[in-house]
Amino acid sequence: MEYFAQQVINGLQLGFVYALIALGYTMVYGIVRLINFAHGDVFMIGAFIGFYTIERYHLPLALVFLSAVAGCTVLAVLIEQLAYRPLRHAPKIASLITAIGVSLFLEYFTSLRQVFGPNFYSFPRPFPVVIWEVGGILVTNIQAVILVVTVLCLLFLQFIVFRTKMGRGMRAVSYDYVTAGLMGVNVNRVISFTFGLGAALAGVGGVLYGIAYPQVNTFMGFMPGLKAFTAAVLGGIGNIPGAVLGALIMGQSETMVSAYLSSTYRDGIAFVILILVLLWKPTGILGAPRAEKV
């Protein structure tokens, strides 16, 4: 029982990091219907910014997060404007292939020796690890940091989406792109903002991932990105609470399979769950069915 509870805690840790990545996928998909394959690599860049700011400049934790957020936001807005915006009215597959191109470029360009290099780097711990024992279960202060930071991010996101003018614009554009434009919403700016916001969360996620699983590599963004996107689909794409729910399910299932079955099956289980859920409810757990226009 204690072993099980311990795994639940570990699963939560993983799930929260996935949630931060999944939010970026779900918001971007909700607005431009694009699977932004480069998002996982933005997350990787966030982790690397965390790595350099801690290892080289010894910045305090708050500034580490801030620089990762700033770096990722600028990167994502640049990607959106240079690569995706010119294709907004082209067939959807062109944007998808471009997204894959951007993803490959970020991975291989940063793995050049002149940039980050192809090696695995061990991520420095920004604070000494403290382990508490709560009723036989071990909880680390890393897990506490992940919990607090993720919850703060979610509250911040909730505030932006439901309490600001930009948030209203985002909701309007995701509901109906053309009409929102006619109603005076600056669609281009909303889309750039959404990319930036998603990337900011991915940046935070990257630093947290580096702290929790202390190793970074330029290809580290691929699998978490894929799983976070799957989590977003699982919860109902375009739906913010859905992305968090999907990510938590993903984190739990993966941890449980590693704990009770074998870690070699870890990557598979998430997708088995995904396929089963899609068959039962094609729009995801919390996704609203879209009316089909004929």
Partner: peptide
């Protein structure tokens, strides 16, 4: 089962199948 899904959802389901097969 999968061909009842449409567009991107089918893409994700087949992607999932691909990863499951890799694990297999």
């Amino acid at each position: 089962p999968a061909l009842r899904l449409t567009s991107d959802y089918l893409g994700i389901a087949t992607l999932g199948f691909g990863i499951i097969m890799k694990v297999v």
